[in-house]
Design a protein around this nucleic acid. Structure first.
Length: 667
DNA sequence: AGAGTGGGCCTTTTT
DNA sequence: GGCCCACTCT
């Protein structure tokens, strides 16, 4: 059945019959109203969302009246591109992106209602931490009560509070009991932090959402305007939304009530960020007339892999029961690989990758997925030693690396001369200037209408000790030259050539690599016309590394190393999961409560369902920790619980490591 | 006084 | 390995 529609003078043809199975088609062609699409891993969730969008457009819905909320900007981009191919329409007309991205867009135009000028600056996590640190020292919190939370932790506490819409007291009791006694000083620090942000027009990630919701709640006219505008609201990865986000969605859908949410409760893995699966499980209680669609046919994995996934997740109590059904025929059984220790584990991974290559696999076919970044350390060393090319997704996000943040800080000063954090950062880079002198310079220029000009005033250097004066003069000249250039790419080139390149050479052994990084940023920045557009995108998304890989001139192939969290939504023919030991996966930090353990099991579920053909689960039996103590590890309970109690066929094939590996080195 | 440097502590997941 | 603190050098 091919239905043809006339749209914008162009005939579009989509074969809804061929491209979709019955389950998918029901979801795609559903009428308006609230709809919950429960989409198991690999069941074509993205396809359903894109075809749903295409269907709506084909029905005559105007693209600019559709809102698509996704978990990453990349996901939005990919879906919208696909929709454009299916149903040609004006590019960029559909609003799509992460909650933070859309919030930024909304607040740049309507923010004045909640006290934000359109020029506000977005703080990333490190900036927020720096500012919190300043607040702690300003309040002179009595640190003799030793364990006062670090700025990072303070940020996490503040974030958890707003994202779950709870009181500070409650958050401390439930998640940070060790700090419960410090509620008052913590509260004082957070209050000061909030005041400082507002006074300087600074907005952290959470503020984007908080202020968006406040805008909708306190300004009925704005809410009416936005709710009227978005005739259809679609939310991806609904299982990972938090209270704040769900409230925003609810407000936006008040007028038309055409709200489609898609997700998989078995893949809810962001509770540490305030997300709550129950939001999805209890969707119907908020929208009693919800239409439900289920996608349970898995197109990705072999039946053997799915059996592991199904058996494992069945141990969870908080879930919407479902069973992934294979569309593929039988393949290899997933393998359990016991290793003597984590060195042998790394060697196995390296050698097995070489073995897979011999069998005709490509490096791109293979991924190593782990629970925490540091689990990959020895593996990286081993792969490097054997010249196996690999890429590490995440870890330090690209834009969070020190050298990238340094040059971005210069651009931030050019965009907003009153950006204190950027000034402090840049000033502290200068020889003979540390935190104290940086503060002194900032105090001198902060009140000036144009701090960049003020910094070049000849008299200013007099406030510094003689040794520090030349570096300040040089910085002033640099900034003055930079702001003469209007677009961000040129500014970056200027900064790199005139100053930062030398700085790198003098300071880092891998200066060439860092220089390349900055050049990559410059190339990325070339698509932006103004520094502001560039800087806010960079602040909200670290979603850039993928781009360099694809657009890079060298078509190099590599194995992927990534945390499970960052692997979500991706797939590989061969997946290796190291550290399948209790205390690692599940991590011992999340084995306290049933809820935590169930979340860990969902992380495992995500990991397993990334694999298409082959899955290897590795357990090192001994771990030598940083104190060189040798610690015995037990196989993960996620593996032992897979074994049928009364002697059925085991789900895993034990794969013993054959000799040929170098002898285990001691110490 | 404040910048630079070496030693001890610990390791979740991220828009 | 990364981060904070205490110590030493200018």
């Amino acid at each position: 059945m091919v239905r043809t529609f006339k749209l914008g003078g162009r005939r579009v043809a989509v074969d809804w019959e061929r491209d979709l199975n019955d389950e998918q088609r029901a979801a795609v062609m559903a009428p308006g109203g609230p709809m919950l699409i429960i989409a198991g891993a690999g069941s074509g969730k993205t396809r359903v969302l894109t075809y749903r969008l295409a269907w709506l457009l084909a029905q005559g819905v105007r693209p600019d009246r559709v809102l698509l909320m996704t978990f990453t900007n990349r996901a939005a981009r990919e879906m919208l591109q696909r929709v454009e191919q299916l149903v040609p329409h004006e590019s960029g007309a559909i609003w799509g992106g992460t909650f933070h991205h859309i919030a930024n867009r909304v607040l740049r135009t309507h923010g004045t209602h909640v006290g934000l000028s359109s020029e506000f600056t977005i703080l990333d996590r490190e900036d927020a931490g720096d500012l919190l640190g300043v607040c702690v020292s300003e309040l002179k919190v009595p640190i003799e009560r030793r364990r006062f939370p670090r700025p990072r932790v303070l940020g996490a506490i503040a974030s958890f509070r707003v994202n779950t819409a709870q009181t500070l007291e409650r958050v401390l009791e439930e998640r940070y009991p060790m700090f419960a006694a410090l509620r008052e000083p913590i509260d004082a620090v957070l209050t000061l932090y909030h005041q400082r942000k507002r006074r300087q027009q600074l907005v952290d990630y959470d503020d984007l959402l908080v202020e968006w919701l406040r805008l909708l709640d306190e300004h009925p006219a704005v809410r009416a305007q936005l709710a009227e505008r978005f005739e259809h609201v679609l939310v991806d990865e609904y299982q990972d939304t938090n209270t704040l986000q769900r409230r925003i969605v609810d407000r936006l859908a008040t007028r038309h009530r055409n709200l489609s949410v898609v997700g998989d409760d078995a893949q809810a893995i962001y509770s540490f960020r305030g997300a709550d699966v129950r939001g999805m499980i209890e969707f119907r209680s908020r929208y009693p007339d919800t239409r439900e669609a289920r996608l349970e046919v898995n197109y990705r994995s072999t039946p053997e892999i799915l059996e592991v996934a199904n058996t494992s997740i069945a141990h969870n109590r908080t879930r919407l029961p479902k069973q992934l059904r294979p569309s593929r025929t039988g393949g290899l059984r997933p393998a359990f690989v016991p290793c003597a220790d984590h060195f042998e584990q790394s060697r196995f991974i390296a050698e097995y990758i070489l073995h897979l290559l011999d069998q005709g696999r490509d490096l791109f076919d293979i991924a190593v997925l782990y629970r925490s970044h540091w689990h990959a350390m020895e593996i990286q060393l081993e792969l490097t030693a054997r010249d196996i090319p690999f890429t590490v997704r995440g870890g330090l996000r690209f834009f969070e690396q020190m050298h990238i943040k340094d040059v971005l800080a210069m651009l931030r000063i050019g965009h907003n001369g009153h950006d204190e954090l950027a000034w402090q950062r840049v000033l502290r880079l200068l020889p003979r200037i540390g935190g104290r002198l940086a503060q002194r310079v900032w105090d001198a220029i902060a009140g000036q209408p144009d701090p960049v000009t003020a910094a070049s005033a000849p008299m200013l250097a007099a406030i510094l000790p003689p040794a520090a004066r030349p570096s300040l003069r040089r910085l002033a000249r640099l900034l003055a030259g930079m702001v003469e250039r209007a677009d961000p790419a040129e500014q970056l080139t200027f900064v790199l050539e005139e100053y930062y390149g030398d700085h790198l050479d003098a300071r880092y052994p891998n200066a060439a690599q860092r220089r390349q990084d900055i050049e990559a940023v410059r190339d990325f920045a070339a698509q932006y016309k103004t520094p502001e557009a560039f800087l806010s995108d960079v602040a909200i998304t670290g979603d850039f590394t993928g781009e360099t890989c694809e657009d890079g001139p060298d078509e190099q192939h590599f194995v992927t190393l990534t945390t499970v969290h960052q692997a979500k939504g991706l797939e590989w023919p061969v997946v290796l999961i190291p550290w399948m030991a209790d205390g690692r996966f599940p991590t011992d930090l999340a084995m306290g409560t049933t809820a935590e353990l169930e979340e860990e099991r969902r992380v495992f579920h995500v990991a397993v369902t990334r694999a298409k053909d082959e899955l290897y689960l590795l357990v090192p039996h001994v771990w030598s920790n940083y104190r060189r103590q040798r610690i015995l590890m037990k196989p993960s309970r996620f593996l032992t619980e897979l074994t049928p109690p009364n002697g059925g066929t085991p789900l895993l094939e034990t794969m013993l490591i054959e000799s040929g590996l170098p002898a285990v080195t001691s110490g």
